[in-house]
C-alpha cells in the first residue's frame, strides 16, 4: 500500500437503534473503536453487522443514537472523514474498464491527478496490465481487487469491510488477508463483518458478536475471541 497520508481516526457508536418499520435491525448499540484497531463483527445473518457498517459509512441513517468519528486522542472530529467501504457487492460498473471505474470515482471525489492515483492503486492490487479490460470480463477475485482499489482512492483512515471474502477462492482470500494486514499495519482503523473464522479473521485485534441487533459479546469485556467467531459459524 502507498505510504499513509491520513490522520488516525476512531469511531464511537452511541445508543444506535435502527428500525425498518417495526423490525429492529440494531438495538441500543454503544461501542467505541479507537484509532488503529481492527475489529471483526461476527453474528448470524440478520444480526445487524451490515446495518452497523452501513451506518458507519453514512449510507444509512440511524433511527436514533449518534455516530462520531474521533481523532487519535479520542476527541470528537467536527467533520466526518471519508471512509473506504468494501462489501460483497463490488460497487463498480461492469460496463466500464477497471481504469474508467477508478477515474470515475476519483473525479467524483475531487482527487488531484486522478489518472496517476488510479494507476498507482491498480498497480498495487496487481491489475495495471488489465486496466483497459471491462470489469465484466474479470473473475470474482479480480473484481474484489478493483473494489479495494476504489475504496482506497481517497486515503481513508477508516476501512469498512462487509463480508468481503464471500465467494472468493482460497487464493483470493489469501490475497485479501494480506491486503487487510497491510491496511491494519498502516495504522488504519478496520471494521469488518465476517462469517466465522478465516484467514482474515485472525488479523482482528478485537472481536464483537452481534445477535438480533445487539452487542452480546466483546473481547474487550473479556469474551473469548475464538468463541465469538466460532459462534458465528454455528
Amino acid at each position: 500500500m502507498t505510504p499513509a497520508s491520513f490522520s488516525p481516526t476512531g469511531i464511537r457508536f452511541e445508543n444506535i437503534d435502527k428500525r425498518y418499520g417495526g423490525l429492529y435491525a440494531l438495538r441500543r448499540v454503544s461501542l467505541e473503536v479507537p484509532a488503529g484497531e481492527c475489529v471483526a463483527f461476527a453474528g448470524r445473518n440478520g444480526s445487524g453487522k451490515t446495518t452497523l457498517l452501513r451506518i458507519a459509512a453514512r449510507l444509512a441513517r440511524p433511527s436514533s443514537g449518534t455516530v462520531n468519528f474521533l481523532n487519535g486522542s479520542g476527541e470528537k472530529l467536527a467533520t466526518p472523514p471519508p471512509a473506504g467501504f468494501v462489501a460483497h457487492a463490488t460497487m463498480v460498473y461492469d460496463e466500464l474498464t477497471a481504469e474508467e471505474n477508478m477515474l470515475l470515482f476519483a473525479r467524483l471525489q475531487g482527487i488531484a491527478k486522478p489518472t496517476a492515483r488510479a494507476e498507482t492503486l491498480l498497480a498495487e492490487v496487481g491489475l495495471l496490465e488489465r486496466r483497459n479490460s471491462l470489469v465484466r470480463t474479470f473473475s470474482r477475485g479480480m473484481r474484489q481487487r478493483v473494489a479495494i482499489a476504489r475504496a482506497l482512492l481517497n486515503e481513508p483512515a477508516v476501512i469498512l469491510l462487509d463480508e468481503p471474502t464471500t465467494g472468493l477462492d482460497p487464493q483470493g482470500t489469501s490475497w485479501f488477508a494480506q491486503t487487510v494486514r497491510q491496511l491494519r499495519d498502516s495504522g488504519r482503523t478496520v471494521l469488518m463483518s465476517l462469517h466465522g473464522e478465516s484467514e482474515v479473521s485472525t488479523l482482528a485485534t478485537r472481536a464483537i458478536r452481534l445477535d438480533a441487533g445487539a452487542v452480546v459479546a466483546d473481547t474487550r469485556t473479556g469474551a473469548n475471541f475464538r468463541s465469538i467467531l466460532a459462534f458465528a459459524n454455528a
Partner: peptide, 13 residues
C-alpha cells in the same frame, strides 16, 4: 443495484 454502485456513488459525491 446489480453491484450496489449507488452506494459507491453516494459515498463519492
Amino acid at each position: 443495484q446489480t453491484n450496489d454502485t449507488l452506494s459507491a456513488l453516494r459515498l463519492s459525491v
